[in-house]
Simulated assay, not measured.
Amino acid sequence: MNRKTDNTEGFDAGRRSLMKATGVAVAALGVIPVAAATPAFAQTSSWDKVFPKSDRVDHQKVSFKNRYGVTLSGDLYLPKERGSGRLAAVVVGGPFGAVKEQSSGLYAQTMAERGFATLAFDGSFTGESGGEPRNIASPDVNTEDFSAAVDFIGLQSFVNRERIGMIGICGWGGMALNAVAVDKRVKAVVASTMYDMTRVMSKGYNDSVTLEQRTKALDQMSRQRWTDAEKGAPAYQPPYNELKGGEAQFLVDYHDYYMTPRGYHARAVNSGNAWSQTTPLSFMNMPILTYIAEISPRPILFVHGEKAHSLYFAETAFAAAAEPKELMIIPGASHTDLYDRIDKIPFDRMADFFGQHLA
């Protein structure tokens, strides 16, 4: 297994921008312009993905409720050549701030081409899924969203509910690991280009936030609650992934995916929309990977880019996880390369992994 530990990539010079991406510096530094939330959308039956439709896969829009009563919107993908037996299934979520028409849909469709029933879905309060107000997130609710997807796909007559796996991408990689730790129905999990969102929101990139900064951020967000309560609606952070110059390379990479035809989608929080200003509150004191070792004896496959600024999240999670586990480093790949670069995402390895462990 190839490993790389030097992933600093100029964090100090871009610190303000890096922290802005977590929502912490916005509060800590008092820089709080107001952006609009992505409006709620009715489900569309048209193909509005950022990737081409496969002629080897059947696609269907679906909806289902999570344990909190929020209606989630999903895309179900099935291989056209699927025989008469029940299929192994894989549910797919992420990245954080993305929608199912982006990376998770690409992963789901590609895995369906390899013989799995797959489900990509929008998290609560985002995309085509329900929930008000819009564009808020929670480690508890988003973990529950994954298990709700398992509920749904396990009830389908064409699925063998004893053969269900999970893929989490970017910030939802951490959510997937958290879900699988408690949801024993899931037999194997892949965390691709993962973030631990509770770690980055509470401590900043490379754990660089000081206690003073954290306290100031929490104080400001706490007081923001009064403003939101008085107005009856949340205020929002600055628009995501707009560039002003001088940003660190990985923020340029985010812009290249979310704000260009490569990956732009109007419903994505990351495509020029914004999370609420108080969204980080629920992440600030709830570490989601506390029980990662309890995924064992079910296997974990971590997939990460050699040049990803986020590699340290996967390395830390890998070290904390129990066997069986594997950390697959993709040579030369950045964080966002594993969103959509077909030549770099190891779909064949993922298919082999699930083929083995969902047998």
Rank of each mutant, 00 (worst) to 15 (best):
D75H: 13
D75E: 15
D75L: 15
D75V: 12
L76W: 15
L76Q: 13
L76G: 07
Y77F: 15
Y77T: 02
Y77I: 03
Y77S: 09
L78V: 02
P79R: 09
P79S: 12
P79K: 08
P79C: 06
K80V: 11
K80A: 08
K80L: 07
K80D: 09
K80I: 13
E81G: 04
E81Y: 00
R82T: 00
R82L: 04
R82Q: 08
R82S: 09
R82I: 03
G83R: 03
G83A: 00
G83D: 01
S84F: 01
S84E: 14
G85D: 14
G85H: 07
G85L: 00
R86E: 13
R86Y: 01
L87D: 10
L87Q: 09
L87E: 12
L87I: 13
L87M: 14
A88H: 06
A88L: 04
A88D: 08
A89P: 13
A89N: 13
V90S: 09
V91N: 08
V91P: 05
V92D: 03
V92P: 03
V92E: 02
G93E: 08
G93V: 00
G93A: 15
G93I: 01
G93T: 01
G94L: 01
G94F: 00
G94P: 04
P95M: 05
P95E: 03
F96C: 11
G97N: 06
G97E: 09
G97A: 07
A98H: 02
V99Q: 03
V99M: 06
K100R: 15
K100E: 06
E101N: 15
E101S: 14
E101G: 13
E101T: 10
Q102T: 06
Q102F: 05
Q102P: 11
S103F: 01
S103M: 03
S103V: 07
S104Q: 14
S104H: 11
S104P: 07
G105T: 01
G105W: 03
G105D: 03
G105K: 01
L106E: 06
L106Q: 10
L106P: 00
Y107N: 01
Y107G: 01
Y107F: 14
Y107M: 02
A108V: 07
A108Y: 06
A108Q: 04
T110H: 12
T110M: 14
T110L: 12
T110Y: 03
M111I: 12
M111E: 02
A112C: 10
A112T: 05
A112W: 05
E113M: 11
E113L: 14
E113I: 14
R114F: 01
R114K: 14
R114P: 06
R114Q: 10
G115P: 08
G115W: 08
F116S: 07
F116K: 12
A117L: 07
T118S: 13
L119Y: 10
L119H: 10
A120M: 10
A120W: 07
A120Y: 08
A120N: 09
F121Q: 00
F121C: 04
F121W: 10
